[in-house]
Amino acid sequence: MWCPSVSLSLWANAWLAGKAAPDDVLDALSLWAPKQSVTAYDAVAAGHTGLPWPDMDDAGTVSLLQTLRAAVGRPVVPNGPNVPGRLRGTINVLSPVPGDVRGLPPGTQFGRDALAAGEAVIITNPDDPNAAVGLVPEFSYEGDETDDEDPELCALSWIVYSLPGAPVLDHHDLGDAEYALRSAVRSAADALGTIGLEGAAGVEDPRGLVEQVLESTRHHRIPDHAPSRALRVLENAAHVDAIIAVSAGLSRLSDADPLGARVVAGVDVAGTQSSSQAQIASDALRPLNGVVRSARMAAVSAILHSAWND
């Protein structure tokens, strides 16, 4: 798992489908930060979700589950034939980057904040498309920015925005994504051995460093109903992304791809290359960022849909 929006969407969707317990959702989110909270950005979002307004005090972790339940709404006909699957497709993930903001409503604060974060969750009400809301995560840190030590992550806040309507989301085909990813894996592996990383000062085992980056992400669980093909695509995408991070250096990658930067959190890969080597690596591997992003979105979409296949 490479960002909290994916953790929230997969586990909340599994919970709504009856494939996970509420504690599973909370446990998955706790791996990102020890404290979670949720706040309405505007009065309309508060009305759709039941969050307090105009009181802006953060609601606690349990309130996040209540917010999700309220956002998808209650069935118009409680015992109707379509009630069991009515929530299929109500939770989706966006991973906007500069130049590709598909799914974001233009001219909205939600769109600007989601783009800045590089991620967001969309929740729609199947009976009222105009009641759609978007969630954007915001990390909080403790510590003085002037200190030599890195500030300590202390909390993750979810900001809930009202949306002008249910957004039109692109479909990512898992088969096409896997095919493109196979080529990306080969290209990334070739680049790791040919762009001069082995000769960089202080890097004796670049492939070991790639494995270290991968290991830092494996403590995040995925719901048991996830298709094996989707899991394979996520693993391969993480492998390519780790190679990109190690090759280009964390400091450069964080500017080029927010999703990739988050993958390597906790592993210091910056400073392992000279500036010229970093530039060569970045130029050679940057096109693969889009392949990784599309593959991940296809895999996440497949996992979301698999919760409702019974």
Rank of each mutant, 00 (worst) to 15 (best):
179 Y>N: 10
242 A>G: 01
124 T>G: 01
118 G>P: 04
269 V>L: 14
153 L>T: 14
107 G>M: 08
131 A>T: 02
107 G>D: 15
295 A>T: 09
70 A>C: 11
49 T>C: 05
138 E>G: 11
41 Y>W: 10
265 A>M: 07
170 D>W: 03
287 P>F: 01
49 T>W: 00
45 A>R: 06
206 P>C: 10
234 L>Q: 08
93 V>R: 02
58 D>P: 09
250 L>C: 02
140 S>F: 14
251 S>C: 08
2 W>E: 14
211 E>T: 05
198 E>Y: 14
16 L>A: 04
227 P>E: 03
44 V>C: 12
159 I>D: 06
190 D>M: 12
263 V>A: 14
78 P>M: 06
123 I>Q: 03
63 S>P: 01
160 V>Q: 03
146 T>P: 01
127 D>H: 13
191 A>T: 08
252 R>Q: 14
267 V>R: 15
278 A>T: 09
232 R>F: 11
178 E>F: 05
217 T>Q: 14
289 N>R: 12
24 D>C: 06
307 A>W: 03
241 D>Q: 13
203 V>S: 10
135 L>N: 04
189 A>P: 00
236 N>I: 03
241 D>V: 04
241 D>S: 12
310 D>I: 01
251 S>T: 14
83 V>M: 00
292 V>R: 10
73 G>E: 03
186 R>I: 07
96 P>I: 01
91 I>S: 00
154 C>P: 02
280 I>K: 10
51 L>E: 05
96 P>L: 01
113 D>Q: 14
41 Y>E: 13
2 W>A: 11
87 L>W: 02
281 A>D: 00
279 Q>M: 09
131 A>H: 07
55 D>L: 08
13 N>R: 10
284 A>F: 05
92 N>C: 07
213 V>P: 04
43 A>G: 13
201 A>K: 13
16 L>G: 00
162 S>K: 11
134 G>M: 08
94 L>I: 06
242 A>Y: 02
44 V>F: 10
19 K>A: 11
275 S>F: 09
241 D>C: 10
191 A>G: 15
258 P>N: 13
278 A>M: 08
266 G>T: 10
282 S>T: 12
308 W>L: 00
98 P>Y: 02
80 G>A: 09
254 S>L: 08
304 L>S: 06
3 C>L: 13
34 P>W: 15
63 S>R: 01
254 S>P: 02
246 V>N: 01
121 V>S: 05
305 H>A: 15
303 I>T: 09
309 N>I: 00
97 V>Y: 04
219 H>F: 15
143 G>I: 13
95 S>W: 05
86 R>W: 04
77 V>M: 08
34 P>N: 14
114 A>W: 00
217 T>R: 15
45 A>Q: 11
153 L>C: 14
13 N>P: 13
139 F>K: 11
232 R>I: 11
169 L>R: 04
277 Q>E: 12
118 G>I: 02
62 V>N: 10
136 V>W: 00
296 R>Q: 07
100 D>W: 02
292 V>N: 08
25 V>R: 13
270 A>S: 14
111 G>Q: 08
110 F>T: 03
233 V>G: 02
42 D>P: 13
164 P>E: 15
166 A>L: 09
309 N>Y: 00
